[in-house]
Design a protein around this nucleic acid. Sequence first.
DNA 1: AGCGGATATGTTAGCGTTAACATTCGGAGT
DNA 2: ACTCCGAATGTTAACGCTAACATATCCGCT
Lengths: 338, 338
Amino acid sequence: MGATQGRRPPVMADVAKEAGVSHQTVSRVLNEHPNVRSETRARVMEAIDKLGYRRNLVARALVTKHSRTLGVVSFDTTLYGPASTVYGIEQAARGAGYFVSIVSLKSIDKIGVSDALDYLADQGVDGIVVVAPQRSAAQALGELPFGVPTVAVEGGEAGDVSVVCVDQVRGGRMATEHLLSLGHETVWHIRGPSDWLEAEGRVAGWRAALEQAGRPAPEPLAGDWSPRSGYEAGRSLASMKDVTAVFVANDQMALGVLRAFTEQGVKVPDQVSVVGFDDIPESEFFSPPLTTIRQDFGAVGRHSIEVLLRQIEGQGSHERERLVVPPSLVSRASTARR
Amino acid sequence: MGATQGRRPPVMADVAKEAGVSHQTVSRVLNEHPNVRSETRARVMEAIDKLGYRRNLVARALVTKHSRTLGVVSFDTTLYGPASTVYGIEQAARGAGYFVSIVSLKSIDKIGVSDALDYLADQGVDGIVVVAPQRSAAQALGELPFGVPTVAVEGGEAGDVSVVCVDQVRGGRMATEHLLSLGHETVWHIRGPSDWLEAEGRVAGWRAALEQAGRPAPEPLAGDWSPRSGYEAGRSLASMKDVTAVFVANDQMALGVLRAFTEQGVKVPDQVSVVGFDDIPESEFFSPPLTTIRQDFGAVGRHSIEVLLRQIEGQGSHERERLVVPPSLVSRASTARR
DNA sequence: AGCGGATATGTTAGCGTTAACATTCGGAGT
DNA sequence: ACTCCGAATGTTAACGCTAACATATCCGCT
């Protein structure tokens, strides 16, 4: 007995005593303050090692008012797109020395997003990235809590915040132009849900490409991103005679389309060419391997963190940025010359 | 001038003054302490509303020593399995009033996991879930930081921690028995990487089922979970005459196998039956739709949080638990009677 | 009236860190 | 030798909250 060396983890004062300095000097060593004699520094480091001291980041956050934690709000991180984006965000954030706190929403309505933002703001995050691919989510960004810097990913013209997104319109255009360049008369489209900004963008690009080429735009078929909805749209398409090219708004639905065509004896790409969107890892091994538009989710994640950190660190400047990542065409065997 | 009503967010003392009570009473209201007159409570609530007060969780964490944050360490959350598990964890944690801080590792080596654990421990998390599907990751759980409660998901016989996992052996057995019951003489296997516990378990189940039926076990083919590796293994298999049934260790590789068989003119399920593992959303729309073993990732996530919270809240009890989630067979069109 | 014991509130003292200011010390400059 | 300055260190006071203890206040009971 005697010494109060309980199981309590050591604090700065313990290290200070061990090293024979004041706790403030320990703090200086930890924060790499220049004005510390290197001999003192060594002594402190030794004491830290000996005691197994770890600085208490909570106490630090209380006084500095920076938690070095970023919040991420996303929708269904089970899907490849959101999962990849969040992954990119997390990697970039950690690289910059920030923790990442995640909130995955089940349904992404305005209330859900607002709640999530409040929740994160309460926790004291230094900034927030909202992966807001739906219009309703983007709208929720209007009322942000208490000046927490925020960036929207895929957020369209979201409220008053910076946005990082993939150029969906351009992607839709690329897919369509690729098919037209192969000699197809026109291109059908299976679109995503109407409240998704990405779906809108892809439709717009598709329509623009057709218009520019002076081709008629058939009525787009509605899907919900799921393979099943693609399958159902595919069955409709299979029964029509004049369909030779289809641009499907994502790879999962394209898989459903391929399945439907296979069942109906429609040969891809001999009779119909198909282009998807996303380039999920499976696409290369569909039957046939799918031509698709690749989105660089990793880049989106990285950029969103860059923009956010710029906003956090450069306190004053309130200019909202808008960063657009270009998609790219990955040509495989599901498309052929007419 | 005069009043110091700057842009500074209000603190408890401000609310207290506004309501004409002490800050402690405000604290009691916030923490739903019973001994507060309902009239006082109302007055405090009103003041909170009026000032737009939000309690500072960092300060709270400093004094209570509980951050109400859980850490999650995972490997490549881009993959469907990990992504789904993490999603389940996050939902369950938030439901229980905890924040979730995520660290996604690129390569899951022992050092990576150790670093991640340190990192989270520094941040002051109340508990940690490690999604440790690789042996090397599970080993890193041996040296845990400073008594932070920890649960391993898919962690095998991980060090000294509780484990929640899917019964991989049983899954492998189910897949194999299903094929044998359809009249196949034996079942080939395309396995996952050897340092993955899940891969091992599935191999073991497959082997056990064959042994029990007194059938010869062919040498398993090696894969790395990717569709490409499945494709390559599939090409080998396609060139052999006596292959009529294949159990593939995950759905992505199974997709590659189907692709290879299609290319080689091998009909599934007429000539060869194929069973996968995971039941990813795409499997139902492969050509043909894939028979597979479903893992309930959501349940795994939920259970891991339950176990972890039990460990956090019931401080004393150190019994490590082991919770096994059963898989289930999803029968589709890629398997047929011999 | 007086007392015990809930019930409601206030006061004080930290939690472990950094910021701000105070102090000491060793030289360079005159 | 003396001043002055900057480098190195120490001391004190927050940060915003909860825990623990202290102080009313009210009620029923003898």
